[in-house]
């Protein structure tokens, strides 16, 4: 794997607007009981775009992300991935999709979790190969060699036969990323991928994510890494109390926003991260 320059490849901007958006979120709302965690969210993610969701904890970022692949059920509005309605039937309003349809939708949407969620009883290689066999129906030998290439891509070829318990947090997260990219998803969701890591391990995971972005992967990333958001994201959405309070390019959100809550959030962030 090669280190990647910070410049944005041409292909990433040229696709915008000329096709169906990768993700289109319209008027989405969700409540846990009387607690409204998402209110009237609108968000578009185009192909090859990297969108970071930032904001204080409890602002609904992770919930929104989990609604995109329907790990969380949204109550109002609609989410579409490549034009396909997520979670509900197109014909009958608010009728849940069958598990089969949900699966076919999810196989194009990869998700990386805060806690890695590797399967502890399988080696790194087996973790990556598993869904290739179970979901894509590859035979075991083909799945294994494909999985090996994916581990190589995240720089972990040497750890193929290690069980997750023997890997550092950063290595586990890279295996988790390899597990997802092996499925060749059209879209990747990252749910605070570096929040559970020791500070010195954050960099290696962010580097893998930068490489993915440079390769043109469409990514939605919930993160507290403002540096990553500022340097890699095409768009940043600032969430506060279940609403998108600011949206735009990193420059627009970080430097030009007049929204007081954004300023307050960034202020706190800088105070905490300076010494």
């Amino acid at each position: 794997m090669t280190a990647v320059s910070q410049t944005v490849p041409l292909s990433r901007t040229s696709v915008q607007g000329d096709t169906v958006p990768m993700v289109s979120i319209r008027g989405v709302g969700k409540s846990f009981g009387t607690n409204e965690v998402l209110r009237d969210i609108d968000l578009t993610v185009n192909k090859s775009e990297v969108v970071c969701l930032i904001g204080p904890s409890g602002s609904g970022k992770s919930t929104l992300l989990r609604c995109i692949n329907f790990l969380e059920v949204y109550d109002r509005g609609e989410i579409r991935i490549e034009g396909r309605l997520v979670g509900y039937s197109e014909d009958t309003p608010r009728r849940r999709l069958s598990n089969r349809d949900l699966r076919s939708l999810r196989r194009n949407v990869g998700m990386v979790f805060q806690q890695f969620n590797l399967w502890p009883h399988m080696t790194a290689l087996e973790n990556v190969a598993e869904a290739l066999v179970q979901v894509r129906g590859m035979d075991k030998a083909a799945a294994t060699s494909h999985a090996r290439r994916m581990l190589d891509r995240v720089g972990l070829a040497a750890k193929a036969d290690s069980y997750p318990a023997r890997l550092s947090g950063g290595q586990q997260q890279r295996v988790a990323i390899a597990r997802v990219i092996a499925m060749e998803p059209h879209l990747m969701l990252f749910d605070e991928p570096t929040s559970a890591l020791d500070p010195e391990l954050v960099g290696e995971v962010l580097q893998v994510m930068r490489d993915l972005a440079a390769d043109g992967m469409t990514m939605v990333v919930v993160t507290h890494e403002m540096g990553f958001a500022a340097n890699v994201a095409d768009k940043v959405a600032f969430l506060d109390r279940g609403r998108i309070a600011a949206f735009g390019t990193p420059r627009e959100v970080f430097h030009e926003s007049t929204e007081p809550r954004v300023q307050q959030f960034l202020q706190t962030y800088h105070e905490r991260n300076s010494f």
């Binding site: 692949n69 790990l71 598990n99 699966r103 076919s104 939708l105 999810r106 196989r107 949407v109 990869g110 998700m111 979790f113 969620n117 590797l118 399967w119 502890p120 598993e130 869904a131 179970q134 979901v135 988790a176 597990r179 997802v180 499925m183 969701l189």
Partner: peptide, 11 residues
């Protein structure tokens, strides 16, 4: 662990 499998489209 189950969510990871669900998000990969496993039955």
């Amino acid at each position: 662990q189950v969510e990871a499998a669900l998000s990969l489209g496993m039955s």
